[in-house]
Computed example of a mutant assay.
Amino acid sequence: MNFAVIVFPGSNCDTDLFHAIKDVLGEKVEYVSHQEHDLEGFDAVLLPGGFSYGDYLRSGSIASFANIMPAIKDFAELGKPVLGICNGFQILLESGLLPGAMKRNAGLKFICESTPLTVEHNETMFTNEYEMDERINLPIAHADGNYECDDDTLARLEANHQIVFKYDDNPNGSKANIAGIVNERGNVLGMMPHPERAVEALLGNDDGLRLFQSILVNWREHHAVTS
């Protein structure tokens, strides 16, 4: 399986993602510049955390107009996995690939800590290696992680089982404790916590590894069917 890690000006978690895929998951991975227009040959696209374009205007706003974004939208339209983490989630929201928006954290302070989550939906290509209602811990590091949407959007997210992760203690004030959502098709996931920072038991936590393993398991099952 071949992963693309998209690199924007200001990305700072791209190397963490690269390490998680290459050295821990053991799969192929390449950095892809925001200036590129093509994602041919890749099986999954990862948008890392950081501060793309310095978070000017709004977090993820300028990045949503980068050269690579039309290719990412086409990639998602094909049903292939697209994962946006932290700033990557913000970019997915700003580009319209996921519904809702991000506000400043409820306390108006940057938060950097490990936080408990509950797996709300384990039948996605990103969560099939988790148990339903499983409680995990993942790091967060953000100032604009307060997920917001209108009541109609929330109702649709709930009805379509698009809420994948919820905070147990809601550190940033997100609506309905939302920490991660997928699109209706289930192949685009945005989440504020950082699974790529929790992939090695040696460093104290590997709860995030199963997210990447889930993508790989899903791809292998699909490849076996279509080969």
Results as ranks from 00 to 15, higher is better:
residue 221 E to G: 05
residue 171 P to C: 04
residue 102 M to N: 10
residue 41 G to K: 13
residue 181 I to G: 03
residue 172 N to A: 06
residue 117 L to K: 04
residue 161 H to R: 15
residue 33 S to D: 10
residue 117 L to Q: 06
residue 178 I to H: 01
residue 87 N to L: 08
residue 211 L to N: 05
residue 216 L to D: 12
residue 48 P to W: 05
residue 95 S to N: 04
residue 220 R to F: 02
residue 163 I to D: 00
residue 106 A to Q: 10
residue 196 E to L: 06
residue 215 I to W: 06
residue 76 A to R: 00
residue 177 N to M: 08
residue 74 D to V: 08
residue 43 D to R: 08
residue 20 A to V: 12
residue 167 Y to T: 03
residue 227 S to C: 10
residue 44 A to Q: 07
residue 62 I to N: 02
residue 207 D to Q: 10
residue 96 G to P: 08
residue 128 N to W: 00
residue 226 T to H: 12
residue 122 N to V: 11
residue 118 T to G: 04
residue 78 L to A: 13
residue 107 G to S: 13
residue 121 H to M: 13
residue 188 V to S: 01
residue 157 L to I: 05
residue 30 E to G: 04
residue 79 G to F: 09
residue 134 E to G: 05
residue 81 P to M: 01
residue 1 M to I: 14
residue 9 P to E: 09
residue 26 G to S: 06
residue 13 C to S: 15
residue 14 D to Q: 14
residue 127 T to E: 08
residue 77 E to T: 15
residue 225 V to N: 06
residue 188 V to A: 02
residue 166 K to F: 03
residue 49 G to W: 12
residue 213 Q to D: 06
residue 199 V to G: 00
residue 38 D to G: 08
residue 29 V to Y: 01
residue 131 E to T: 13
residue 88 G to T: 03
residue 26 G to H: 05
residue 207 D to A: 14
residue 37 H to G: 01
residue 94 E to G: 04
residue 8 F to L: 11
residue 40 E to F: 12
residue 226 T to Y: 09
residue 24 V to S: 05
residue 225 V to F: 04
residue 86 C to K: 02
residue 38 D to Y: 12
residue 51 F to W: 08
residue 197 R to M: 12
residue 80 K to L: 14
residue 74 D to A: 13
residue 6 I to H: 05
residue 222 H to V: 11
residue 165 F to P: 04
residue 132 M to N: 15
residue 96 G to C: 10
residue 145 G to I: 08
residue 158 E to H: 05
residue 15 T to I: 15
residue 183 N to H: 04
residue 11 S to D: 01
residue 126 F to C: 05
residue 86 C to S: 08
residue 64 S to I: 07
residue 71 A to R: 09
residue 187 N to Y: 00
residue 215 I to V: 15
residue 4 A to W: 08
residue 119 V to L: 08
residue 65 F to T: 11
residue 208 G to P: 00
residue 82 V to C: 03
residue 37 H to F: 11
residue 168 D to F: 02
residue 37 H to K: 15
residue 45 V to T: 04
residue 69 M to Y: 01
residue 157 L to A: 01
residue 164 V to A: 08
residue 118 T to D: 07
residue 221 E to Q: 12
residue 185 R to Q: 13
residue 43 D to T: 11
residue 122 N to F: 06
residue 162 Q to P: 02
residue 90 Q to S: 07
residue 34 H to R: 02
residue 189 L to R: 07
residue 172 N to K: 07
residue 38 D to K: 14
residue 56 Y to W: 04
residue 69 M to F: 02
residue 31 Y to H: 13
residue 89 F to R: 07
residue 115 T to Y: 09
residue 123 E to K: 15
residue 38 D to M: 11
residue 19 H to T: 13
residue 174 S to H: 11
residue 125 M to L: 13
residue 73 K to I: 00
residue 73 K to E: 00
residue 56 Y to N: 09
residue 125 M to P: 09
residue 212 F to K: 01
residue 63 A to K: 11
residue 140 I to D: 10
residue 182 V to M: 02
residue 148 E to K: 13
residue 151 D to F: 00
residue 131 E to W: 08
residue 33 S to R: 14
residue 202 L to F: 15
residue 187 N to A: 02
residue 183 N to C: 04
residue 199 V to A: 00
residue 208 G to A: 02
residue 226 T to Q: 09
residue 223 H to P: 00
residue 223 H to A: 14
residue 18 F to M: 12
residue 187 N to V: 00
residue 138 L to K: 00
residue 193 P to G: 09
residue 107 G to Y: 06
residue 213 Q to L: 14
residue 27 E to V: 01
residue 185 R to F: 03
residue 124 T to M: 07
residue 173 G to W: 05
residue 78 L to V: 05
